[in-house]
Design a binder for these strands. Structure first.
Ligand SMILES: [Mn+2]
Ligand SMILES: [Mn+2]
Ligand SMILES: [Mn+2]
Ligand SMILES: [Mn+2]
Lengths: 218, 218
DNA sequence: ATAATTGTTTAGAGCGGTCTAAAAATAAGC
DNA sequence: GCTTATTTTTAGACCGCTCTAAACAATTAT
């Protein structure tokens, strides 16, 4: 039996540590979970005890094969629910995250299998993130951040690194969505801001935006 | 802020006490919640403290107006999710309850409003129970139990008093579903078993079945 | 290499929910 | 009415998860 809180910690370790294989520091985990380091330590011990995590004192934490399986399954549920909310219930991409955080913990194998079929086996969620299949296989998404894109080249927007309401609404306001074609006009060395062209209109974006927008060559 | 456990207790008080207005005993509540009387007492105190329940020591518990609102909202969510599972995800009426018990606690007003619309504002769940509308209004279902039905009269099945897997599968096996026409042939005084006719075929059912099957005159 | 800083773990406590065992109140039997 | 049985409440404990404060380990600076 695995608790909702344990699932959330496992997911956080997975995301912080590049699929859970890289070691994650206690402070980083606490920060991500909005708790204190002492709470993170307690949970890490428990996860290690239950064989979801590898842990040596002062050496950080990573996921075992079991832990990775749990993480992938939760991510699969999270992203399938996000697709459901957008495709069927008229949610916008900035409205789905909080609800999906709750729905991802519903326990029913049939539910998630049927939902997957009902949605026609989607491969990506509303933010462009890949949805693991029933076996936990991820489709790797080829992508570069806008910050690493080359001047003069045209790209397609394929994802975001930050699913916060503020960032997603900023993108909406500037007509940037998944599939939008973006041409990189100029990268300013001084403050790393970037001039881009979208649908004929020029736009200046900050370094922060550049780092959080994922593209692939058009 | 109201916890998942509080919500479940409130719902139980509502169901045990005829919409929460009749007083419910500590033992009955503990029994329904699969806990001990001492746990029920603790929770009753907390609910009274939060103004969801009326409570005087040794006098049982009932719901306040606030408590009733909470209960009705959870029931609404529970039943809408049940409809979703059956109508959209190929669940059978005996498979929905456990999952709905989890889904009913998801917190999002938009989610439930959109789900309601997506399902085309259903008025009854897969077990024939009425779904409260957004304002909490129940449509009253006119019904008698099969045990109270009159010999020689034809009825339509409109609901069940017991949504357990065993009972629902029994009904499936005997071709009894919502909408099925049932004629009462004979009520045996000795053991209160009942001979009925369904689709031309005669069937003998026990008193237990009679008490758990709701009908209305055809 | 020693000192200072930063990162991590432990100690001890609190809250929500559960339990068992025992005390108190109510209901039933005679 | 008094006694017994039943119901309900209290007392004290435990588990999961959180916190603050303090101890300890690792890293960085001088
Ligand atoms: Mn999300
Ligand atoms: Mn997403
Ligand atoms: Mn149900
Ligand atoms: Mn139902």
């Amino acid at each position: 039996m695995i608790t909702l809180t344990e699932e959330n910690y496992i997911k956080a370790i997975f995301h912080l540590g590049k699929q859970g294989s890289v070691t994650v520091s206690t402070n980083a985990l606490a920060e991500a979970m909005n708790t204190k380091a002492s709470s993170a330590t307690d949970m890490i011990k428990k996860l290690a005890e239950k064989n979801y995590a590898n842990y040596k004192k002062y050496q950080g934490v990573s996921l075992t094969a079991d832990g990775k399986r749990v993480a992938v399954n939760i991510i699969r549920k999270h992203r399938l629910w996000e697709v459901f909310l957008v495709d069927k219930l008229n949610f916008t991409w900035d409205q789905v995250h909080d609800v999906a955080e709750q729905l991802e913990h519903i326990k029913s194998q049939k539910l998630i299998d049927e939902l997957d079929a009902f949605l026609d086996f989607p491969t990506h969620d509303p933010h462009g993130d890949p949805i693991p299949d029933k076996q936990g296989k991820f489709e790797h998404v080829e992508k570069t951040s806008l910050s690493n894109a080359k001047e003069g080249v045209s790209y397609v927007c394929v994802g975001v690194n930050d699913s916060s309401v503020d960032f997603l609404k900023y993108l909406d306001n500037n007509a940037i969505a998944l599939g939008t074609v973006i041409k990189v006009l100029h990268k300013e060395p001084f403050d790393h801001s970037i001039k881009i062209k979208i649908d004929g209109k020029e736009l200046m974006v900050s370094q922060t935006v550049g780092k959080n927008l994922f593209l692939k060559e058009a």
